[in-house]
Design a protein around this nucleic acid. Structure first.
Lengths: 248, 248
DNA sequence: ATAAATACTGCAAAAACCTGCAAAAACACG
DNA sequence: CGTGTTTTTGCAGGTTTTTGCAGTATTTAT
């Protein structure tokens, strides 16, 4: 096997599992330990992974636990303010989770009279602070990763409601591939939320634009509003100017 | 598992719970006590945590005493510890809301393997920090006062489960009148929770004893465990020594 | 005060690493 | 095609890191 092929194999393993053990690679690739070590050394030198005693780790793996402060808070507040203009008195709104939506919940006008369904306990807690908002927390299995409720029970309940507007945070948005995600369950959930709602707004910080992940949630055509912190005529948004999709 | 991964795991636990026990890490990571101790030593040397007898603490924990505002916190922690002894591996537990229950959720052993149903988003969020606990958040209308879900939808879902143990905080407890409350909806809710569960534990700070409110939830006979911060033979508890009611 | 839990120290085996070297393979070019 | 050069690979050996264990000291709890 060629060196380049080995390198690709290693990187695939890393992308898949976030890590790789030297001993495993020796077995899988059928070469000596020294060869693997040299491979990892080279990939580490070219900055593609992080070499550690016993194997290597994905570079992105590092940043898993430094989310103490909300990232890009200002941008998220600006997004929230724009999105709030979509919410009118008397509306029934369905929301997902995520920091952007929580920020939106904090910025709502005090006299808004509306009904909110949400799958995020954090959002529910924020919304409960408003006297005139009725909050319904959709129950089910609680996801440790996404911090929202999910699973069959949630899907069932979603099928029984018909909100005027659905507000969703974003993992990734792409002109051709639309809204995509990585987690199967969350993917199903978002699809159902979109289908249940009359209109849909995607809240998307600009750096999540032009990225495409593995699982498809919706095409641009299925989305009604795209809300970013950029102004509507920003060139970065040019490729998203599709019929029916209103950018604000 | 790679050392770096262990270190990350430890830091994640610390960020989540503000503390970590050596013995828990031994179980969770499946390595010897010495290894954990050396890991903690290294993380302490690199100034990432504070090592103490029995485990380690978050560095920020020291300064961030913002949750010290919880009233009678020590008593509630002591209640929580006693109540936790009722929870065994594999159990299905149903909990209400309130600061006592939240405190309990924070004090659970790291390696507990159990299923928790709860009507409190706060409790759900705390429970989600444990790797081996499955959390089901029961959904419905969200009460602005009690900060729990309630209403017909919650009652319906409660009728479909049959937990081994129900943990309830207390508004008031009285030797003759039993468990009482003021809010009609919450009253209905608690009744349903008690009926659904095989056994029931009431978590009650001593100053809520000998008080009676307007709406009756349950008699002492319908309760299996009474947990207070007092020792079981405290004279204040003498009037609660009823057949079937175990005091701890 | 005494028992249990936790920590520390030194040690030894195993695992992983590194360096230099030489055989083998791939390559370059007249 | 042949020959010199470079690259790749495995190996031998010595070094470092990691880990668990045993024995002893210290802390905590009752």
């Amino acid at each position: 096997m060629l060196k380049k092929e080995r390198h690709d194999f290693v990187m695939r393993q890393i992308n898949l599992h976030n890590r790789v053990l030297t001993s495993d690679l020796v077995q899988l690739l059928n070469v000596s330990e020294d060869t693997i070590r040299r491979d990892l050394q080279e990939l580490s030198d070219s900055n593609q992974l992080i070499k550690v005693h016993g194997g290597a780790l994905s570079k992105s793996y590092q940043s898993s636990f430094d989310d103490s402060t909300v990232y890009a808070k200002d941008a998220k507040i600006s997004i929230a303010k724009k999105a709030i203009s979509l919410i009118k008195d008397g509306m029934v709104v369905l929301t997902g989770g995520g920091t952007t939506i929580i920020e939106l919940a904090k910025q709502l006008p005090e006299n808004l009279h509306a009904t909110f369904f949400t799958i995020s306990p954090f959002v529910a807690i924020e919304l409960a602070k408003y006297a005139k908002i009725e909050v319904i927390l959709i129950g089910g299995l609680f996801s440790k990763n996404s911090q929202v409720t999910y699973g069959g029970h949630v899907i069932n309940q979603l099928s029984e409601i018909s909100p005027d507007l659905c507000l969703l945070g974003t993992s990734a948005l792409h002109p051709a591939d639309g809204l995509t995600d990585t987690d199967w369950e969350i993917n199903q959930l978002k699809k159902t939320m979109l289908n249940a709602s009359k209109r849909t707004a995607i809240l998307c910080i600009s750096e999540k634009l032009d990225i495409s992940l593995r699982l498809k949630v919706a095409t641009l055509e299925n989305i009604h509003y795209l809300v970013t912190e950029l102004s509507a005529d920003d060139p970065a948004l040019a490729t998203y100017k599709v019929k029916n999709l209103q950018i604000l």
